[in-house]
Write a protein that binds this DNA or RNA. Structure first.
Length: 437
DNA sequence: ATTAGGG
DNA sequence: CCCTAAT
């Protein structure tokens, strides 16, 4: 008994897989532990991933079903499919001392299944050669680097110690019905059809992208982020705090004037800015913190195809004010600088966004000019109404820094100052950086 | 790389 | 917000 335990432990410590062969335990050596890692190495590119061969591919070709212990075992289906049951990814199948996760262990099991299959068919020289052909064909297929390297294939094929990888006693007995001749025929035909280069369909572009999306969660930082990510880096907590503080100083106490139809947004919604619930009206306090921003956009970074159109972030009043501040300081056309200095804590705003927002602000101010003339007294109904003071500042800045450069939209050479210029009382809050008086 | 302009 | 041309 002790000896048996010791024996087991000894082999457990080594790179052995425990297999049952004809009812008795046998250690199936994984001598080439290094080479086994070839199977575990993740493909470096998504393209490779798309072309990777999976165990299922083999099982389909062989008419075999590879099942794991996780699923309920149906003996009949086993008999029908001549299935192989894999050992549960337990600690026994793992080499001790290695830090493999359970997933890796499972991959090992899958690998073992493939090995078992191959070994099982290597009874005759014909089968062996067929198997070799199959593997060589697979290796070179499509010019893609499959995880199957030459050495491991040879190892598999030459390893006749592994006959069966089975932990199910009943299955072992049922499997005894196997008829060598029938098996040989089936194997031969299957292998032949396999070696006819069953082409793996080249994954569609969309498939690759979607796969990359899901896969890239595990591969953070492996791929060089797109250029947009340049704006993702939150410079420093101090700086962002500084900015936030400044912004808070600028935030008007009373926001009742800056939105008539502001739908109620629950706090839970605000805590999940990923949802980007479209909200009309400015919410100065929905300004996510720097860490929140990071989280939001890191999730956006994860998905390369993060569709900002579908997850539009409303411009908050504080953001608009910051933008106006930045333009007042740096002028128009220096969006990157504004972005760097004032929007470092809001990574979802690109310099182009700033410019676009400024264009919209100009448009908005022009609308109000028309209103002031009384020609079109259309309140900006659907859009978020801006505080008059803000529009005033936009107007002033538009005169100082005309944008677009050449043909300024409304130079408004002090011809007819808009209403909100006259109503100086409407200035309900203080513009911190620059005073226009 | 950044900006302007149009969609 | 995106795309593209221009700088």
């Amino acid at each position: 008994m002790d000896q048996e335990v010791h024996f087991c432990q000894k082999f457990t410590n080594m790179n052995y897989h425990w297999v049952k062969m004809e009812g008795s335990f046998l250690p199936a050596p994984l001598n080439e532990s290094n080479e086994v890692d070839h199977f575990l190495v993740e493909p470096k590119s998504d393209h490779e991933l798309g072309n990777c061969l999976r165990v299922q591919d083999f099982s389909r070709d062989f008419g075999y079903e590879i099942q794991t212990n996780d699923a309920e075992v149906d003996e009949n289906s086993f008999r029908q499919n001549r299935g192989l049951q894999l050992g549960k990814p337990s600690s026994e199948s793992k080499s001790q001392g290695s830090s493999r996760s359970d997933t890796d262990a499972f991959e090992i099991s899958e690998l073992s299944a493939t090995m078992v299959m191959e070994a099982e068919f290597n009874n005759t020289p014909v089968e062996r050669s067929l198997t070799r052909e199959l593997f060589s064909g697979l290796r070179t297929r499509g010019g893609c680097a499959t995880p199957f390297e030459g050495n491991i294939c040879d190892t598999i094929l030459d390893n006749n110690n592994i006959h069966k990888f089975n932990t199910n006693e009943n299955y072992l007995e049922n499997e005894k019905i196997s008829d060598e001749n029938v098996k040989g025929d089936i194997v031969a035909s299957k292998l032949a059809s396999c070696s006819r280069e069953r082409r793996l369909r080249k994954p569609t572009r969309r498939y690759i992208e979607e796969f990359a999306d899901s896969k890239s969660e595990n591969n953070k930082g492996r791929r060089k982020p797109p250029t947009k990510d340049k704006y993702l880096k939150v410079t420093s907590t101090e700086e962002s705090n500084h900015i936030r503080h400044k912004v808070q100083m600028l935030t008007p106490k009373d926001e009742s004037h800056c939105g008539t139809s502001v739908p109620v947004q629950s706090r839970s919604q605000r805590r999940h800015p990923e949802k980007h619930v479209p909200v009309s009206g400015f919410l100065s306090e929905d300004e996510p913190s720097a860490t929140e921003c990071k989280n939001v956009y890191s999730s956006a970074k994860i998905c390369k195809k993060y569709d900002r159109r579908k997850h539009q972030k409303m411009w908050t009043l504080t953001e608009v004010m910051r933008l106006v501040d930045g333009i007042a300081e740096y002028g128009t056309g220096r969006w990157t600088r504004i972005k760097r200095h004032l929007f470092a804590s809001s990574p979802h705003r690109t310099p182009i966004d700033l410019r676009d927002k400024w264009r919209n602000l100009l448009k908005a101010s022009c609308v109000n000019i028309q209103n002031s003339k009384g020609t079109e007294c259309k309140q900006p109904h659907a859009s978020r109404p801006l505080p008059k003071s803000l529009l005033q500042r936009v107007y002033e800045l538009a005169n100082i820094y005309p944008y677009p450069k050449e043909r300024s939209p409304k130079p408004v050479r002090e011809a007819t100052p808009p209403m909100y210029l006259i109503e100086s009382n409407s200035l309900s809050f203080n513009w911190g950086r620059k005073k226009y008086e």
